[in-house]
Design a protein around this nucleic acid. Structure first.
Lengths: 153, 153
DNA sequence: AGGCAATTGCGAATCATTAGCAATCGTGAA
DNA sequence: TTCACGATTGCTAATGATTCGCAATTGCCT
């Protein structure tokens, strides 16, 4: 089952000395099966359903490790906290609705072209990246109940 | 002088009831003249040189206001804190070197094409966005002293 | 000039994330 | 298979960035 395949997966890309623990297996499994991006707290919440004693520190440590191992990608939306997703579920990018917060994923061959261009023009070796567009989705655009929030209120 | 032009600039786009204060003028002036992106702490440091009593809260409040007014753009790099820059100094994007942290700005007409594509394909009205590529710059790529930092060390 | 609401400064609060440390548990060698 | 050592965990406390609460100021409209 998935636990096993994660174990092999993890072990295969571990650096020497790195251990495969049940916590890491659980967390990686959760992120893998979480169709899309999740934040640390969501992962923590789901992990506790399976292992009520798991610690938030462990979640953060695992995320940091997975990121360093290249297994997951850290995303920076408009918010104060980060989101994570397995990498690469094919290179895709995000579009966030400023009204309802919905995140739509998209992909475009043009992005590969941009990366090439940057590599060439600026002599920079691009290893990853993020494209986050913001705007309004169709639903939110149609309802004119766009209550403009004042700053201090 | 710049103070005055900023005053006119600010007043012109203020909502009714919004005030033009010396603090806001100072802060906006600093961001405008800060060729490129700066973070809140850097702005605070520079602002104190001119007004030692200015408060960090005021800096954050002004940034939030300027962002809401559309005067500055908030950038999310790999870090825990945000960066800001005046908007739009022409639509451009960023490339961060993972080794030395240098940020290179670039622009590409392809990005406009992506936005159009997204608008069309997903019925999403894009109002802004961010493209952050990461990789290694030429200098860091050449020095093979790429000391790989272990996670816990 | 005068008054009221917007803004400031300060300190404390909050939120996400990280660090310290003793107890535990994978794992490679015997 | 067992052992021992070091990697990892789970606490809890610390940190760093950002926001809040509130009394004191101060733009700005009349």
């Amino acid at each position: 089952m998935e636990q096993d395949s994660s174990a092999a997966y993890l072990r295969a890309r571990s650096l020497p000395g790195q251990r495969v623990t049940p916590q890491r297996l659980l967390l990686l499994g959760l992120i893998r099966r979480a169709q899309g991006h999740v934040d640390a707290d969501e992962i923590y919440r789901r992990a506790r359903e399976r292992n009520p004693h798991i610690s938030l520190s462990t979640v953060y440590r695992a995320l940091r490790l997975f990121k360093k191992m290249g297994l997951v990608e850290e995303l920076h939306f408009n918010e104060e906290h980060h989101h994570y997703e397995v990498k690469p579920p094919s290179q895709h990018y995000h579009m966030v609705c400023m009204e309802c917060g919905k995140v739509i994923e998209f992909l475009s061959p043009l992005i590969g072209r941009i990366v090439e261009e940057v590599n060439r023009e600026y002599d920079f070796t691009v290893t990853g990246g993020e494209v986050s567009l913001v705007g309004y989705c169709q639903e939110c655009r149609s309802q004119e109940t766009r209550t403009e929030a004042k700053l201090d209120e």
